[in-house]
Design a protein around this nucleic acid. Structure first.
Length: 300
DNA sequence: TACCAGGCTCCTT
DNA sequence: AAGGAGCATGGT
C-alpha cells in the first residue's frame, strides 16, 4: 500500500513538468514559457555548478562535459540555446525538465524553514550533471571559496580539456590521470592536488562510477568515500548533483547554521546532523530541501 | 590583517 | 570509534 502510494507520487512528479513548455527545433533551443519553477540565476548560483559565466543580466553560458549552452531569461520566458540539435535531449535532461518542481515545493512547504526557503529560491532546479565532472569539481570544493573553486576548474579545463573552438571541454579521466600532483598545484588546487592525482588515476583505471547508481544513499556515500579527497559531505554533493539521489543531505558550514536555526542546538556531530535532517525532510525529497535551504541561508 | 571557505586525511587516544 | 591538528590558497 505504501509502495503503491509512493509509485503514484513518483509518477506525479515525473509527469510533464512545465506546462506549456514549447519545443523549438528551428533555432536549436528549448523555450520555457512558464517561469514559476525556473530561474536561471537560482539554478546556477545555488552552489551545484561552478562552470558558467554571466554574459548579461539574466543571460548565462553554461558548460557541461564537452558541451555548452546559452540560457537567456527575460521577464516571461527563458530560452536554452545549444550549438547542435543533437544536444537537445542532453540539455532537456540536464535541466531536469521532466520533473515537476511545483509538486516538490508544495510537498515540502510545511516542513521547518521551507516556506521562506522555497519562496526565495523558487526557481531552483537540481541539474543532472556528469558524474566524473561532479566528482572532480567537488573534490576541489572542499574547504574552499566558491569564486576560487571556479578559478581552479577553469584553469583545469583550459590546460587539460579538449579545445572546442571558443571554449574548452572538461578534461577526461585519462587526461587527468596523465598529470601529477605538481601540475594540480600549479593551477592552484593547493593541498587537494594529491587527491586529484590519485582519484583521477583510480577512475581511469576502471573504478565504475555508473555502478553506484543502483545503491541507496548511505551505501553509495560509503563507496564514494573510498576515493581519496572524497569525504561524506563531498560524496553527498556528488550523489545529489550527478546521481540525483534524494536520500542524502550535504552538511557544510551553511547547513550547520540552518541546523541551529531549526533545533536550537549546535551541529557538533556531522553524522547525527545528516541523519536528523534526513528524518525531518524525508528520504524522498531531502536533497531538494537541502538545496533550497542552502541557497536561502547563503544569500540572506 | 585575520578569518573563513559547499572538509579531508592522518595521527592519537 | 572518536577527536583534533594540519592543511594551500585567495576572497572579504
Amino acid at each position: 500500500m505504501l509502495l503503491l502510494k509512493y509509485l503514484i507520487f513518483c509518477a506525479k512528479i515525473r509527469q510533464k513538468a512545465l506546462k506549456g513548455t514549447m519545443m523549438n527545433d528551428k533555432n536549436n533551443s528549448i523555450i520555457i514559457d512558464d517561469l514559476k519553477d525556473f530561474d536561471i540565476r537560482h539554478i546556477l548560483d545555488c552552489g551545484q555548478i561552478f562552470r558558467y559565466t554571466k554574459l548579461d543580466e539574466g543571460k548565462y553560458m553554461v558548460f557541461s562535459k564537452d558541451k555548452r549552452c546559452v540560457v537567456d531569461q527575460s521577464n516571461d520566458k527563458a530560452e536554452i540555446s545549444f550549438d547542435s540539435e543533437k544536444d537537445r535531449v542532453y540539455f532537456w535532461h540536464y535541466f531536469d525538465l521532466d520533473t515537476n518542481y511545483s509538486v516538490i515545493k508544495s510537498t515540502l512547504e510545511d516542513k521547518p524553514l521551507m516556506k521562506e526557503a522555497v519562496k526565495y529560491g523558487h526557481g531552483i532546479r537540481i541539474l543532472n550533471q556528469d558524474k566524473w565532472e561532479t566528482l572532480i569539481s567537488f573534490i576541489i570544493s572542499a574547504n574552499n571559496h566558491i569564486p576560487r573553486i571556479k578559478g581552479i576548474i577553469d584553469r583545469l579545463c583550459t590546460k587539460l580539456g579538449k579545445n572546442m573552438g571558443d571554449y574548452y571541454a572538461f578534461p577526461t579521466s585519462e587526461a587527468m590521470a596523465s598529470m601529477d600532483e605538481d601540475f594540480y598545484k600549479s593551477i592552484g588546487a593547493g593541498y587537494r592536488a594529491k587527491y586529484l592525482e590519485v582519484t583521477s588515476r583510480k577512475i581511469a583505471e576502471g573504478f565504475d562510477l555508473d555502478a553506484i547508481d543502483k545503491l541507496d544513499g548511505l551505501s553509495a556515500n560509503k563507496k564514494l568515500c573510498s576515493l581519496m579527497g572524497v569525504g561524506s559531505k563531498v560524496a553527498d554533493c556528488i550523489l545529489l548533483f550527478a546521481y540525483h539521489k534524494q536520500d542524502v543531505f550535504p552538511v557544510d558550514t551553511w547547513i550547520k547554521k540552518v541546523y541551529k536555526d531549526i533545533t536550537g542546538k549546535d551541529s557538533l556531530d556531522i553524522k547525527k546532523t545528516r541523519k536528523d535532517l534526513l528524518d525531518i525532510y524525508g528520504e524522498d525529497m531531502a536533497g531538494f530541501a537541502q538545496q533550497y535551504l542552502f541557497f536561502n541561508k547563503r544569500e540572506n
